[in-house]
């Protein structure tokens, strides 16, 4: 088994009202930051898990997103591998 560090980014679906992002956008405007077109606020979940392969690790994280981490009605998610497998390396 290899250890993987995955990052799961969960964002409000496009077009969905994001009042938190809107409030931050207003604050940025009032601080004088120009040219900000849009602000959306999501979540970042760091996952450390063991899996036989990167493919399997991503597959498992996808299942986690579908079941718990993201709400398909309101959120999209994206999974990226944040590191190379560290524990013991790949089997010879």
């Amino acid at each position: 088994m290899n250890r993987f560090q995955l990052e799961v980014r969960i964002k409000p679906r496009p077009g969905l009202l994001d009042p938190e992002g809107k409030a931050i956008h207003h604050a940025l405007d009032s601080l004088g930051f120009e040219g900000v077109d849009d602000v959306r606020v999501g979540k970042l979940v760091d996952l450390q898990l063991e899996a036989p392969s990167e493919e399997e690790a991503i597959e498992r994280a996808t299942q986690m997103c579908r079941k718990l981490l993201a709400n398909p009605v309101t959120e999209n998610f994206r999974i990226t591998v944040a590191n190379e497998p560290s524990d013991g390396g790949r089997p010879a």
Binding site: P19, E20, N71, V73, T74
Partner: peptide, 11 residues
């Protein structure tokens, strides 16, 4: 039940 409950639009 269908749908979801989001942050109040007033925050």
């Amino acid at each position: 039940l269908p749908g979801a409950l989001l942050r109040n639009d007033t925050l």
